[in-house]
Design a binder for these strands. Structure first.
Lengths: 96, 96
DNA sequence: GCAAACTTGTTTGCAATGCAAACTAAAAAA
DNA sequence: TTTTTTAGTTTGCATTGCAAACAAGTTTGC
């Protein structure tokens, strides 16, 4: 079985790693941290959400909308599995 | 700077890891080891070759054509860089 | 000896996806 | 009240992974 494509995409892998080490992060934090365009970030998060790897919460910060993201337990497990799989490829014990 | 997309693709990452641990490998060895279709393997190798990450040698084994592949020094360096980059993402020191 | 099947790959065509530009909707500024 | 800013979403295009179809020979069966 192969690598989880949802996670394998570099931008999403970074998002997952950031979220795995923090309680939650909002859109602008991810935006400036990752250096993506807004559209791009939006699409990637959408994908993570539809896989139930992150949970999205929409609130207001004052009068402006603010969206924040948390990794789910499913997402955390998938992320761990991803690294394990990658390790096995790295050992190249993958093919022997 | 991002991950090398040439290497990042799982099938190609596996090819590179196999080639990095062996003198050379021929088409059928890679085929059965990786479990890809012929077409798919052909395209992936083409990509690695055009990046000068692998060198292709066409010979004959008896009367049948046989193609074998070696990793280049450029390829080996790119592979090492790839893992380093991935490690930095994994430490998530990537964003702090 | 000749057609059918097998080897060893390559090329083609399509569906999926990453990416940024264009758009939307509301709030703040001028 | 018009303009600009904030906070994202949607759209359109170019790229790419993938397998099916093709190609160029070789071996097998009759």
């Amino acid at each position: 079985m192969g690598l989880d494509r949802i996670i394998h995409e570099p931008a999403r892998l970074r998002i997952m790693m950031i979220l795995s080490g923090i309680e939650s992060a909002d859109f602008n934090f991810l935006l400036s941290t990752l250096g993506l365009t807004r559209g791009n970030l939006s699409r990637h998060i959408e994908k993570l959400e539809s896989a139930s790897y992150v949970k999205v919460s929409k609130t207001f910060k004052g009068k402006l909308p603010s969206t924040s993201y948390k990794i789910t337990s499913k997402g955390a497990k998938a992320l761990e599995k991803y690294w394990n799989k990658l390790d096995s490829i790295r050992q190249a014990g993958d093919f022997k």
